[in-house]
Amino acid sequence: MKRDRDFTKNVGYFRNEYQIQYIIDGERYYFESGIRCVKMAAGSVAFIDKRRIPKLNIIGGRYHDRILIEIKEAEFAPICQAVGIDMERVFSQRCGVFQTGKCEEIRDVFEKIEKTITDRGTEQRELRLRMLILNLLVCSSQLEKFREKNFHSASMQGSLEKQKRVCMIADYLAGHYEEHENVDELAGRFYMSRSYLCRIFKEVTNFTVSEYVNLFRIAASREYLLNREMTMTEIANRLGFNSLTYFERVFKQLMSVTPGEYRKQYLGARGKRRD
């Protein structure tokens, strides 16, 4: 995935899959609420745990050329289990950024993945790709020596204070997403103007405040939807949505299915496993 100019996407993103990203050239920024904001440059690898996606985002930066792998758990977990890999555990332990630089071994793995992806005429292409990704997961423990330990890269020291303030706001929102606090009240809580808060929050996270809060609400709603006793209206009210219609619209926007379809899909899948 190439981007031939500075990154100027207007909204954040939300995915419901495990991700691995590898930067071939250019740069991006990895943001984790309350913990770190680091620059990813050529050779950087990011493992993203789908259960933590509301607190993670890879944003900003200049032009970049990257490999993005999204792994659907339902399709890939059985393959991992067959070879003794606990995919959930791998992404939980490896979640974060690894600055591999010019490590030839890591670069070679991703070059093979890239070649397989682009070589569409090759037979058994998908099988080869799956095997390469499995190999990457098996060898992921070797990445630990490259883990990014600094909270902020040297090139970002000039904006360190802004990053800290946004992290404080993001952490607060992560713990209070069920409440109905508006942006004016939030700005007063952190002693800044509404316009300044909105501007720096979007700059750092690539989300508006309401978009960021809704990520946590939808993540929580997925758990509530597995409780057959809770109605849609009860879930919407508990999570701070001002109407059932708004909850359903936001859920469909982020998850590509309605809350009702999600509940039917996952409760049905659980029933089949029990059978």
Rank of each mutant, 00 (worst) to 15 (best):
E223M: 09
N237W: 07
V213D: 03
S210T: 10
R222P: 02
K202H: 15
I235R: 01
Y212L: 00
R194N: 09
F216V: 03
A220L: 06
F216C: 03
N214A: 02
V204G: 08
A187G: 00
E234I: 04
K202S: 09
T231P: 00
L225N: 06
N214E: 09
R199N: 11
T208P: 00
Y212D: 04
K202E: 13
C198E: 14
S195G: 14
T233S: 14
Y212V: 08
L226Q: 11
K202Y: 06
M230T: 02
N214S: 07
R189A: 09
S210R: 08
M230I: 02
E234N: 09
S195V: 15
L226D: 00
R222K: 15
N227I: 14
E223L: 12
T233Q: 15
Y212S: 06
E234F: 02
Y191D: 13
I235K: 07
T233Y: 10
N214D: 14
Y212K: 05
T233C: 09
F201Q: 09
Y212N: 03
Y224S: 11
T205L: 02
A220W: 04
I218D: 02
S221H: 04
L215K: 13
T231N: 02
L239I: 14
L215Q: 10
F207I: 00
V209Q: 08
A236V: 05
S210F: 02
A236H: 02
F207A: 05
E223R: 13
V204R: 09
S210K: 11
E234H: 12
L226K: 05
N227M: 15
N237H: 10
Y212W: 07
M232W: 06
T233F: 14
A220F: 04
Y191A: 12
K202Q: 12
R189M: 13
R238T: 08
F216M: 06
S210V: 13
A219C: 08
E203T: 07
I218W: 01
R189C: 00
A187K: 00
R189S: 11
L197Y: 05
F190G: 08
L215P: 03
R238L: 08
N237M: 14
I218H: 01
E203N: 09
F207N: 14
L239G: 10
F207G: 01
R189Q: 11
F216Q: 03
V213I: 15
V213P: 04
I218T: 11
Y196H: 15
K202N: 12
I218K: 01
Y212I: 09
V204A: 12
E234G: 08
T208N: 01
F201K: 04
R238Y: 03
N227Y: 12
F201T: 08
V213M: 13
L239D: 13
F190E: 06
R199F: 08
R228Q: 15
L239A: 11
L239M: 10
F201C: 10
M232H: 06
G188M: 00
R194W: 05
T231Q: 03
E223P: 00
R217G: 03
F207S: 08
E234Q: 15
R199H: 12
T233P: 02
Y191Q: 10
E211F: 00
S210L: 07
Y212Q: 04
I235T: 07
T205M: 09
C198K: 09
R228K: 15
M232S: 10
